[in-house]
């Protein structure tokens, strides 16, 4: 009989003093070799910094109108031109980026929390509960989400205005108009984007539960808490990080889809979606109003997708192979 190789190698005691490379250091070195992913990360970093710091440094205003100026093509005064109300397009792009990136991040986090909790519960408890919970996910997969997000955005708008009114009573927050609408965006998008995350986490938990190292940890007498936090969570973190990176572009796409239909943030605030909408309406005369917002938005999605793909290859996630 030939012993399986895994047990024969386990028989050789591991050298306890030599530190092996951790999953993360390994992944990092692999990621660095993926030029497209690195480029994506750099582009994202630059864009995010520009959106956060740009308006502070240049003292640009996205609200300042100059009706006499009107729409001007890109030039030395206004690098990306101005819109029909004479507002600087670059400033509007940077402020719009804040909203778009923030919605992308926060709504993905909402989806992350829901998905991980749901998937982990189903995976941990298994059995009947698991099959019922996953059947619900299967059924929800077959539903038209966008329809429900649209309904939520239209019909929950007024209750959220009450939130706005309540917030504006605090002196500090009085200039935060439209917060309710943004909160609604977070919730509505997060509420529909968690399904795949739940599936991935459940699958991971299920496969990890039966792994030998978990059994070994149990045999060593470690407590449940230590097993969960030291052994299980770190091992599902990889797929979760990867899938979160890939959720962000999907969320941003949904946000701009809503904004394009007029269901996103309200004026004078703007996201990239609302800028694209405005640009598409006026593109016949003023091409730059469509081309620059559309270009920056596509570039962001590009970078996020390349970074996500790179992370997936680096962390070698089997869960989503497409």
């Amino acid at each position: 009989m030939i012993a399986p190789t895994s047990s024969s190698s386990a028989a050789v005691l591991p050298e306890p003093l030599e530190r092996g490379t951790s999953l993360w250091r390994d992944a990092w070195s692999r990621l660095r070799k993926n030029h497209l992913a690195v480029l994506g990360g750099v582009v994202l970093l630059v864009l995010a910094l520009a959106c956060v710091l740009g308006p502070l440094i240049f003292h640009l205003s996205y609200q300042n109108q100059n009706l006499d100026l009107g729409a001007t093509p890109p030039g030395p005064q206004h690098w990306l031109g101005t819109d029909t109300l004479g507002r600087d397009l670059l400033a509007r792009l940077l402020y719009g980026g804040r909203i778009s990136l923030m919605v992308g991040l926060v709504a993905s986090l909402v989806a992350l929390v829901i998905g991980v909790t749901y998937g982990a519960v189903a995976g941990f408890f298994g059995g009947k509960l698991d099959s019922v919970m996953m059947r619900i996910v299967d059924i929800m997969y077959a539903l038209p989400f966008t329809v429900f997000v649209i309904l939520m955005m239209v019909f929950l708008k007024e209750p959220m205005q009450a939130v706005d009114a309540w917030l504006s009573r605090f002196a500090l927050l009085s200039n935060l108009q439209g917060v309710g609408k943004i909160l609604l965006l977070f919730g509505a998008i997060g509420a529909v984007e968690w399904l795949t995350m739940a599936r991935i986490v459940r699958g991971q938990i299920l496969s990890i539960k039966r792994m030998e190292y978990i059994e070994a940890a149990r045999a060593l007498g470690y407590g449940r808490r230590r097993i969960i936090f030291r052994h299980m969570i770190p091992n599902i973190l990889g797929p979760v990080v990867v899938y979160t990176t890939l959720t962000i572009p999907a969320v941003m796409l949904l946000e701009s889809f809503l904004s394009f239909l007029g269901l996103g943030v309200d004026a004078p605030m703007s996201s990239w979606g609302t800028l694209i909408k405005d640009g598409a309406e006026k593109m016949e005369e003023f091409w730059w109003l469509l081309v620059f917002p559309g270009g920056v938005f596509s570039l962001t999605l590009f970078s996020l997708n390349f970074l996500g793909d790179g992370l997936r290859d680096a962390l070698d996630v089997r869960a989503s192979k497409d």
Binding site: P249, F257, I276, W287, G294, S298, L301, F302, N305, F306
Partner: peptide, 22 residues
């Protein structure tokens, strides 16, 4: 293919109109 995934319909559509129609 990557380009197709990253350029949303509401950017692609107006651009196609701009070029092919206008």
């Amino acid at each position: 293919a990557m380009l197709g995934i990253c350029v949303p319909t509401f950017v692609l559509g107006p651009l196609l109109v701009l070029f092919f129609a206008i």
